[in-house]
């Protein structure tokens, strides 16, 4: 009797591979930091050890400051992102549906798109009376463009025959938008919303450089200024996890909203 054990691609194996990858990365980090590796063009002399980072995180978690830091950041990212989602999807649908609006709206947007969040800081401080509003604005600029461009792409990609057919069946312009254009562009919009969520967090540290007191981005930047190096990495990792988690939430919610998109042909 021969027993064939298929070890290819079992879920356990794939989970194992991911786990090993994380352990290797942590191990390499520990090694270069312990030996204070200096390669001339890069030095790990001041890079904190993984263990120090964990200690720093536990200290932060046991203190009273973690919650206000988190909630300030979440609030800013959430508001900036929400505004970007509304503006990006609305503008994207308009631009995708009308060549005239495209010619009118796209040039200024294309010009603004390559400007990095950090370049907006001075003007944001000058434009918005409250620093809170300027921070929200900066997370907004980060999320807007991926959402906008994906929405345009999705709307332009809709099969024109579907639109012709829906019109023949008596669809009004509003029904055409709700029943054909928006669902047709939905998978691309979901992609845009998910990427936008990530880029919104991406801009957080930049935004919170303006902040006076609270926020994970502020905490990270402040830790650098006062030379609490392990805390810098705590801030970075927190942002990484929050960004990853919220992107995942957006993607999962989006996939739930577009069930037809994941069907396999079954005939």
């Amino acid at each position: 009797m021969s027993v064939i054990i298929k070890i290819n691609n079992t879920p356990q194996l794939r989970w194992g591979a991911s786990l090993i990858s994380v352990i290797i990365c942590l191990g390499l980090w520990h090694l270069v930091a312990v030996f204070k590796l200096k390669l001339g063009f890069i030095t790990f002399e001041y890079v904190p050890l993984p263990g120090e980072v964990v200690t720093a995180f536990l200290k932060l978690a046991n203190g009273e400051k973690l919650l206000p830091h988190l909630s300030s950041s979440l609030q800013r990212v959430f508001l900036g992102y929400l505004l970007a989602a509304v503006a990006g999807v609305t503008l994207g649908i308009l631009i995708g549906r009308s060549k005239l609006l495209q010619s009118f709206l796209l040039p200024p947007l294309e010009l603004l798109r390559p400007i990095p969040a950090v370049a907006w800081i001075p003007l944001a401080i000058l434009m918005f009376p409250s620093s809170e509003a300027s921070m929200i604005f900066i997370t907004f600029t980060g999320a807007l463009f991926p959402i906008l461009l994906n929405t345009i792409h999705g709307v332009e990609g809709i099969d024109q025959r579907l639109i012709a057919s829906a019109k023949s069946l008596g669809a009004s312009p509003v029904a055409l938008l709700n029943d054909v254009v928006i669902p047709g562009a939905a998978p691309a919009i979901v992609t845009g919303l998910s990427i936008g969520m990530g880029t919104s967090w991406f801009c957080l540290v930049t935004a919170e450089m303006i902040s006076g007191q609270w926020g994970i981005g502020y905490y990270t930047w402040e830790s650098f200024l006062v030379q609490r190096y392990p805390d810098i990495v705590v801030g970075m990792v927190l942002i990484g996890f929050l960004g990853m988690g919220s992107s995942w939430l957006v993607r999962t919610a989006g996939n739930r909203a577009t069930p037809w998109y994941f069907l396999r042909r079954s005939y």
Binding site: A164, S165, A166, K167, S168, G170, A171
Partner: peptide, 27 residues
């Protein structure tokens, strides 16, 4: 276009995001 002039193409134009009943009941 008007609903009393129905049009059928070579390849179907059913809305992929609507179930069969909602596609048929569209008009």
């Amino acid at each position: 276009p008007a609903p009393d002039r129905g049009l059928v193409f070579q390849h179907h134009t059913l809305l992929p995001w609507r179930r069969v009943e909602d596609n048929v009941g569209f008009s």
